[in-house]
């Protein structure tokens, strides 16, 4: 895999991410950590997730998301790292670190960044069960609804 700044095969380090955004003028640092859970959409007993991405596009999109949220949110800094490859149950799959002068901006910006990554970045996950069987996650509904509304202009969908 090419060297990238937002995607990695390596285990994520919370303290490293905190240090990337820490500043003397920050009164708040929010660290969002997305972890692998053992259930999803009725599927239980998940032991790992395998992440795949269109890497060059995902890198650019995450960089765009970070830049746009920084511009609109009055935060000081944002850092994102997302795992690729196999991530075991309980391990961290993604970290979003945000620093801001005040907590409200940091909380809001963190939420915006992770929501946009989940809805827009070309990253997919396959949920793995004991024995190696697995299934692809159904994916982001906003993405699906966007496609429906495009193909059928009369579609009346509500985004969540």
């Amino acid at each position: 895999m090419a060297k990238t700044s937002h995607l990695t095969l390596d285990i994520l380090n919370l303290e490293d991410m905190r240090s990337r955004v820490a500043r003397e003028d920050a009164g708040a640092v929010i660290l969002f950590e997305g972890t692998v859970r053992n259930h999803s959409d009725g599927l239980t007993g998940i032991i790992a997730i395998e992440y795949e991405a269109q890497e060059s596009m995902a890198e650019k999109l995450i960089a765009t998301i970070v830049a746009e949220v920084r511009k609109e949110s009055c935060v000081l800094d944002i850092a994102v790292r997302h795992r690729l490859g196999r991530v075991e149950l309980g391990q961290t799959a993604v970290i979003v670190a945000v620093s801001a002068a005040h907590r409200d901006e940091a909380y809001q910006a963190s939420r915006k960044v992770i929501d946009r990554i989940k809805h827009e970045a070309p990253i997919w996950k396959r949920e793995i069960l004991p024995g190696g069987a697995g299934q692809w996650s159904r994916g982001c509904r906003a993405h699906f609804e966007d496609s429906l509304s495009r193909i059928n202009p009369d579609s009346n969908v509500v985004r969540t």
Partner: peptide
């Protein structure tokens, strides 16, 4: 996605180097 970016749905698409089909995403 053309050349690493989503495209406007109604525009006629041409003049690109790469074309990717992005099925529903599930990062995070």
């Amino acid at each position: 996605a053309l050349d690493d970016g989503y495209v406007p749905s109604e525009r006629g698409l041409d003049g690109f180097e790469s074309l990717d089909i992005i099925s529903p995403v599930s990062g995070g």
